[in-house]
Computed example of a mutant assay.
Amino acid sequence: MLSIIVPCYNEEATLPLFVQAVEEVNQEMHQELEYIFVNDGSKDQTLQVIKDLYYQYPKSLRFISFSRNFGKEAALYAGLQAATGDLITVMDADLQDPPELLPEMLRLIETGEYDCIGTRRQDRAGEPPIRSFFAKLFYRLVNKTGQTEMVDGARDFRLMTRQMVDAVLELTEYNRFSKGIFSWVGFNTKYLSFENRERVAGETSWSFWSLFRYSIDGIVNFSEAPLNIASIVGALSCVGSALALLFIVIRALVYGDPTAGWPSMVSIMLFVGGLQLLCLGIIGKYIGKIFLETKKRPLYLVKETEADLTKKKNEA
Rank of each mutant, 00 (worst) to 15 (best):
R140P: 11
S210F: 04
R155C: 12
A252D: 12
R213S: 10
F182C: 01
A235P: 01
S183P: 03
P263K: 07
S193E: 02
A242T: 11
P258T: 10
F182D: 01
Y255P: 05
L171R: 13
I268E: 13
A230Q: 05
I219C: 12
S183E: 00
A244Q: 03
Y139L: 04
T189N: 00
T259K: 02
F138T: 11
V254G: 07
F177S: 12
A260R: 10
F157W: 03
F134E: 12
T148F: 00
A244N: 09
T259V: 05
K144S: 14
Q147A: 12
F212W: 10
S210V: 06
P263W: 12
N228L: 14
D152C: 01
E198G: 13
A230E: 12
L275C: 08
S241G: 13
S193R: 00
Q147P: 05
L277R: 12
K136Q: 13
S223G: 08
R199G: 15
W262R: 11
V220Y: 06
S183V: 00
R213P: 01
F182S: 00
R197G: 12
M265R: 14
R162A: 12
L278R: 02
V220I: 11
Y214V: 03
R199C: 14
Q276I: 14
R251N: 07
S210R: 08
L277P: 03
D152L: 00
G218M: 01
F182G: 00
L227R: 14
A244F: 00
G218S: 09
V142M: 02
G240M: 02
S241V: 10
G234P: 01
G240R: 01
T145W: 08
G256V: 07
L137P: 05
K190Q: 08
R158K: 10
W209A: 07
R162Q: 09
V272G: 05
S267D: 07
A244I: 02
S210C: 05
G180T: 00
G234I: 04
F271T: 13
A252R: 08
N221D: 08
A135H: 07
R155N: 11
R197Y: 05
S178M: 15
V142P: 03
W184T: 06
L141Y: 07
L253C: 03
N221M: 07
E170N: 10
R251K: 10
N175E: 10
M164R: 04
R158E: 03
L245P: 04
R199E: 15
